[in-house]
Each structure stands twice: as C-alpha cells, then as structure tokens.
Design a binder for these strands. Structure first.
Lengths: 126, 126, 126, 126
DNA sequence: GTGGTCTAGACCACT
DNA sequence: GTGGTCTAGACCACA
C-alpha cells in the first residue's frame, strides 16, 4: 500500500495519512494483523515530522483501526464499530457534501451512483 | 430559514454558516433571488463578528450560490454547476467518509441508504 | 444608444454609466453636441438614484466628455485630451491587466490581437 | 522582487500587492516554486495589517498564482489559465480603458504601441 | 516558525 | 442603510 501526501492540500498531513490508511483497510489493501511501517520510517520516507505521523497513528488507534504491539509496533486492528454516535457523525458529515452536489443541479440518482461506485471499490471479504 | 451555530464545534463558524446555507438551498428553503440577511444583521443575531459572516458569504459568492446586488445586498443565485473539477472534489471528499463507515463494518447497502435518505430530503420541484 | 446596468457587478453603477458613455463616444454612437437624457429620466429608466446618475455625469464633465448646457442639459463634448498624466494613468491601468493575461500563458500576439479587435470597433471619422 | 505600496492611492492595498505579484510573475521576477515572504513578514515590512496581505495572497491562490504549501507557506504556482471566462473578463476590462484613450483623440496605433511596449517587458523564456 | 480563525471596532464607498 | 477596506491584537492548528 502506497501513501501519497499532498503538501499543498488544505487537508492536514496527519489527516491525509489517517484517511488513506482507513481507505486502505476498506479496499482490503490492509488486513487485520498487518504491521504498519514504523513512525520513523514513514516520516523519513516523506520528509515529514515524526509528530505528524504519530498523530495520525494515535488517532487511528483511538478510533480502533490500529493498536500498538510491544514488538511489532502499530498493527492493523478492526476494532472500530459503527455505533449511534458514529452514524450521527456520518450523517452530519455527508449532509453538506451531498447538499452541495444537489444544489449544483446534480440529480439524486447521479449523486447516489457516485457513492455506489466508491463503495463498490471496497472489498467485502470478511 | 433558521441557522444554528455550534460554538463548541471544531468546524469553523464560517463553514457552519456556509454549509447550512447550501443545505437551505438544497432543501428549497432558500430560492433564487431571495435576499440574505445583511452581514451585520446575521452577525449580531448570533453574537459573532461581521468578518466571520462575510467570509461565509464571500465563499458562497465564489462558489456561485450568492451574489452581491448593489441595492439588495447578498442574494441567492444558483450559478454553481457540477463541472468535472467539482465531481472530482466530490469523490475525494466522499471517499474517506464512506471508507470509514465501511471499515467499521457497515454494509454497502446500509451506507447507501443513509445517503439516499439525506438526498430524499432535498426538494426536487423547481 | 442603450445603457445596460448590471446590479450584481462589483463595478459601481456610476462607473458603469460613465464607462458606457465613453464607449458610446468611442464607437461613434454619441457625437459631439448630442444631448444626453436628463438625470431624472435616466434614473427613473433604471430605477436608480438621482445621485448615482449625477455622479456619473459630473465625472464625465470633469473629464471633458460632457458639458452642461443651460437649456439642453448635459451635452456631449469632445474636450478631453490625452496629456502626459493620462498616458501615465493609461499605462498604470493596462499593466496589471496585460500582466495577468500574460501570466496565464497567453502569447503576446494573442493579447495584442484582442486589444486591436476592441480598437477596430471604434469609429475614426473625425 | 520589490513591492511598492501607495497608501494615498484609491486602489486598495491588497489589490496593489496582488497586481504587483502578478506583474512580478509576468516579468519573470517570480518563478514557479518560489516561496513568498510570510504573511506576517510582508505585513510588518510595509507596516500594514496581516489581514490585508492575507487577502492579497488568498485572491492570488484563488486565481491559481499561489498555493499554500504546508511547510513553505505561500508558494508561486502557475496554475492559472486563460479560459473563456477570463478572455471575456479581459475584454470587459480593456474595453473602457481603450475607449477612454481613443475618445481622447489618441490614434489606434498609438494606443496599440503602448500595449505592445508593456507586453514586451514581459519575459518569454520559460 | 507558518498559516487559520475570530474578535472589536473604525472609516469609507455606494445607493 | 448596505457592503468594502483596514487596523490591532488574540488564540489555535499544523509541522
């Protein structure tokens, strides 16, 4: 799995890392038990600060996507669930994005199709 | 149309305003030609600074949802379209959100249903 | 000659009026001695304030494009010349506009062609 | 590259900054990848407020002349193109200026010469 | 250190 | 009255 960082994006680097790892899990590129590259490794690969990588990893740990193994370092875990709070946040995040698309004249089916296409890229093999 | 600001949120106030106005347009609460409350009016209603409101309005102007009428002030304008750049951005915005839901074990249909429900609240009667 | 006012432009209305009258002169639509519509007339035609029209007319008078005739009201005059101050201002106004076009990758000939096309619309019949 | 601000001018300070940076790019003084002075640096150099500088930078970002690099700050980016909208705006901006010159009795060649001279100062060597 | 957000308040331009 | 510009200064997020 290959990370790609956009330094000129307005999305913070740690968020980019976090998002791409979650996407990697959704796509099946990262499986439960996989060892993540070390913080040091990842930071030097991209020429970014250790803190930045650590922040991404720690957030993922908090959300249940990673856990820390004494010897292996950060390891992929699927310990994140969609509780009510998450569902609520999900709707709150989606609403403005979908509203924007709709207000620009896109048809509901058209927008839904895009969501569907994205979802269909995710692997359902568990 | 009623705006609601969450001061404790980590979403910038101007983004909250911007999003709610776009949602208002999608929901049919705001129609082309409607005059927005004046910058100062809205600012004082919420006890926030006029620059914060202005930033929200200006972003909406840049996106084509508002325009400035020399006499009426800010007016709803539906001059925003879904060009290729927007579609690309839309996918880029949706991907991490949907990936997160999927990686938490939600089924594709379940996620899609949520998108559908949100979209169905939008008015399609113009 | 027909004026067209854009209320949603960021160009002040009095400037729009002023510019269009100067363009009318350049295009030969307005000739020396022509009587302008009265301030009241023009203002009510467009539903704008008397002051706004008066400001446009007065600026044109100051520049030598109009003069006030006791009975005829504002009359077209060609009493404006291109002195050194004007040439200097002309260059100062053109520079950022042309620089912008050039910095966007337009070729010098391409830009010049646009200037030429505009100029060729002007009538040289004096 | 040296900026010069005229405080007495009726041209807003942020516009002056913006124009001079675009001119700097056209003249070849600023090249793709160059790092701009920080907002606060530039503001203190000229004794103006950082918001004024930020507005200029942000407008340039919107037009594609600058972008924000997460580590380097604002960086010169040549991501601005001359699409149809721009050409239309260009003509709309040029028309009143050229009309004014022409209505003051300048010959078409004379005016064109001035445009040419300005354009020839711009560097065409990338 | 960088930029991003927000405030409080002033003065001006336009209609 | 409207929006537009500018200031002075604070606090936060990011790397």
């Amino acid at each position: 799995m290959l990370l790609k960082i956009e330094f000129e994006s307005d999305v913070p680097i740690y968020t980019q890392i976090k998002n791409q790892i979650i996407e990697g899990i959704a796509l099946g590129l990262l499986k439960e038990g996989d060892e993540m590259p070390s913080i040091r490794q990842l930071a030097s690969d991209f020429g970014i600060n250790l803190h930045t990588v650590k922040k991404a990893y720690d957030l993922l740990k908090d959300e249940g996507f990673l856990s820390v193994h004494r010897r292996k370092g950060y390891v992929v875990t699927k310990n994140a669930f969609a509780d009510d709070d998450f569902i609520e946040k999900l709707e709150k995040d989606l609403q403005p994005i979908l509203a924007n698309a709709y207000s620009r004249g896109m048809m509901q089916d058209e927008i839904l199709k895009i969501c569907e296409d994205i979802l269909h890229k995710f692997k359902n093999e568990e």
